[in-house]
């Protein structure tokens, strides 16, 4: 079985889709030399017309991708830094997302935005460490946060094939993962997966935090049976899949690397309590309100959701009920 790294899974997905479909083009800063170590080999294989290194003009090249999509392309735009999404929020939300409705269905905007290295990379400080997937869920742009190499491949492929804009967050905390992957295949958008079965509590973990949740579940194995649900797509969310899990366990904890107010954890809890009568109040572990990641490593870690916090939240939920 080949050991596949998360980054190479993204590379494979790009190369496979570019081979399969001439309309797929890739845009981004320093992609010709694969500065983010994702577009490796693409320029040589597909040429500069389809692998376009851009000037530092995020707003222009994001809307350029929108226009190319309106004319038939399936562009993939790479952003090296998650915080650049704030710069192009206007272009994605006001144009790419709104065009199909505003034009009464005259067009589609199949653009994929990939962020290799979202969230904290430790030591990159305030303007390089954001994890704003909930913002895109809020405005209704399809948003995926793959946790594993197989999902990185499968969700990126599905994102490229999707007729709507899709943001792919590849968490820095997952980029160095390697896994035995036997079957590279598309992963459907909007479909979560139970990573670990359990009977006492459902932990929803987003992105790299899936691995923390699995580790905590193992640690607690003697005390409680913890189910870990990986939504994979945060918008549209797999509500039916999650409700099925929580209906069995009766308890819910969410661990989410977003800010607390209006984060995806808030939406997950709200939706579950609308549909399921829980045995205990739900809990969430998130970044603080208004989080800005401080530079010093200990401070950086202190602001991110931690395993201790998750353990405590699970134990409280079990005790409450």
């Amino acid at each position: 079985m080949p050991r596949l790294s998360y980054r190479r899974a993204l590379t494979r997905a790009l190369a496979d889709e570019m081979t399969r479909d001439e309309s797929v083009v890739v845009l981004g800063e320093d992609i010709r030399v694969a500065a983010a170590n994702v577009t490796t080999g693409l320029l040589k294989k597909f040429g500069p017309e389809r692998v376009r290194d851009t000037p530092l003009s995020e707003q222009a090249f994001t809307s350029f991708a929108t226009g190319a999509a309106l004319a038939g392309a399936r562009p993939v735009v790479e952003f090296q830094i998650p915080s650049l999404l704030f710069l192009v929020f206007e272009q994605i939300v006001n144009h790419a997302h709104k065009f199909p409705l505003m034009t009464g269905g005259q067009c589609a905007v199949p653009v994929t935005y990939v962020v290799p290295g979202s969230g904290s990379r430790t030591g990159w400080a305030g303007q390089h460490s954001d994890h704003p997937y909930a913002l895109f869920a809020h405005v209704g742009v399809t948003t995926v946060v793959p946790a594993t190499p197989a999902d990185a491949y499968g969700l990126l492929v599905s994102a490229i094939r999707c007729d709507d804009p899709v943001v792919v967050f590849a968490p820095a905390g997952a980029l160095d993962l390697r896994a035995d992957v036997t079957d590279l295949a598309p992963v459907p958008l909007g479909r979560g997966v139970v990573r670990r079965s359990g009977t006492d509590v459902t932990v929803v973990a987003v992105g790299h935090l899936v691995h923390d949740a699995l580790a905590v579940a193992e640690e607690l194995a003697g005390q409680a049976s913890v189910e870990v649900f990986d939504p994979r797509t945060v918008y549209p969310f797999d509500w039916d899949g999650l409700v099925e899990s929580v209906s069995r366990t009766g308890r819910l904890v969410v661990v989410d690397d977003g800010n607390r107010s209006c984060g995806i954890a808030a939406e997950i809890i709200a939706t579950v309590v609308e549909r399921v009568r829980l045995a205990a109040p739900p809990r969430r572990v998130t970044r603080p309100d208004g989080a800005v990641l401080p530079f010093a490593p200990a401070l950086d870690r202190a602001v991110q959701p931690g395993r201790d916090q998750l353990t405590a939240a699970i134990q409280l939920t079990l005790k409450d009920g």
């Binding site: 707003q59 222009a60 090249f61 994001t62 809307s63 350029f64 991708a65 929108t66 226009g67 190319a68 999509a69 309106l70 004319a71 038939g72 392309a73 562009p75 206007e90 272009q91 006001n94 144009h95 065009f99 505003m102 034009t103 067009c107």
Partner: peptide, 22 residues
């Protein structure tokens, strides 16, 4: 006509991308 656009200055890059792709 790829649309009137209500955000001032926003359409230039969109049109550039569309012409490039065609």
């Amino acid at each position: 006509v790829l649309g009137a656009n209500a955000i001032v200055g926003a359409a230039g890059a969109i049109l550039t991308g569309a012409v490039w792709e065609r």
